Computed example of a mutant assay.
Amino acid sequence: MNQLQVVQRDGKFLVDSRDVAEMIGKQHKDLLRDIRNYNSILLSANLRSVDFFIESTYQDDSGRTLPCFLLTRKGCDMVANKMTGEKGVLFTAAYVTKFEEMEQQQAINLTGLSPQLQILIQQEQQIKQIKSQVDTLTHGLTATPDHTKVVQRVNEYARWTRMGHNEVYNRIYDVMKARFGIDVKTRAENERDRIDQEYFERTGKHYSLSTLKKKVNGIDVMVRMGVLDKFNEILVGMLAAVKKTG
């Protein structure tokens, strides 16, 4: 396993997708495909993909210009979260250690500067951190939301976009499945099938689909699964983007 190299560019610590691919034992072209898929999902949810992955290029031995990505710490987190086993553990340990080393070195480098300059640099870093936090809140809320507020946001999004409510839910479910591997629709359908089967065994009749949907809805399923916050995060980002574009 190679030593991960972290570089600083425009105030960000970044790693090259080629190094990441080598560390996790994956073909670079396959990692690029995965990252492009992540970017597509992020953009579809109106999230800032550049906070995770930054498009770049490099020249190979024959002089060809080829694509690559530079990964932020968030980008490394996303790649690592999709991995299991020893390679995932070792990659996580490597990038966390290297990012911390770079952050510590940056702090040490400040000690040789004048107190006034140190204060200015620290203030700039604090401003960047605050902006990042504000962007995060704008694009997605991380606190567990109240289900009634989530329903209100769905209604608001439907009004702004003139989409049907089912279409709104299904769109967000698709993003949740692609990004987090959470299949709310299948979970709800399985619960409805179980309830309908129990009812049929008792009465010899089946529930209508409308009745089943009233008995088992996606919000209740997500509350029981503990994933309503992820649904809300995606929804908030989509709603903010719609309002911004007017």
Rank of each mutant, 00 (worst) to 15 (best):
G204Y: 02
M83P: 11
G75N: 09
E156K: 14
R162E: 14
N155I: 07
G218W: 03
I35G: 03
Q197R: 13
Q197K: 14
D34R: 07
L70T: 02
Q116P: 00
K82Q: 12
K177L: 13
N37V: 01
L4Q: 01
V221Q: 02
R171I: 02
L137K: 12
V96I: 15
I182R: 04
N39S: 13
R194H: 10
G246S: 13
T92E: 10
L32C: 06
Y38I: 05
T84P: 02
V7L: 11
D30A: 11
L70C: 03
K29M: 07
M23W: 00
N155F: 03
R192F: 09
V6I: 15
I108F: 09
A240Q: 09
K98S: 10
L31V: 12
I54S: 09
Q5P: 05
K213W: 08
T211W: 04
N190I: 01
Q129L: 08
M1Y: 10
D19M: 10
S44E: 15
I119M: 13
A143M: 11
N37K: 10
L4D: 02
K243A: 14
M83V: 05
F53R: 06
C68A: 11
L70G: 01
A143G: 06
L110Y: 00
A21L: 07
H165Q: 12
S40T: 10
L212P: 00
T245W: 08
D135I: 07
T57S: 14
N166S: 15
S62C: 00
M102S: 13
I41W: 04
S40W: 05
V15L: 02
D229S: 12
N39T: 13
P115H: 03
M78P: 00
N37F: 08
V15C: 05
G63M: 10
T65D: 09
V221Y: 06
S56M: 03
Q122K: 15
V184W: 08
F91D: 01
G75H: 12
R36Y: 06
F231Q: 06
R187Q: 14
F200D: 05
A94G: 06
D174V: 06
P145R: 05
R48F: 12
V89W: 02
N166R: 15
V96L: 15
Y38M: 10
L110W: 03
Y58M: 07
Q152I: 04
F180G: 01
Q126L: 13
D220T: 12
V79R: 01
Q104I: 01
F52T: 03
G112P: 00
L110C: 02
L228M: 03
V236L: 09
E55R: 11
I182G: 01
S44F: 06
Q152K: 13
E22D: 13
I172V: 15
T111G: 00
R179L: 06
V89G: 00
I121T: 01
I182P: 00
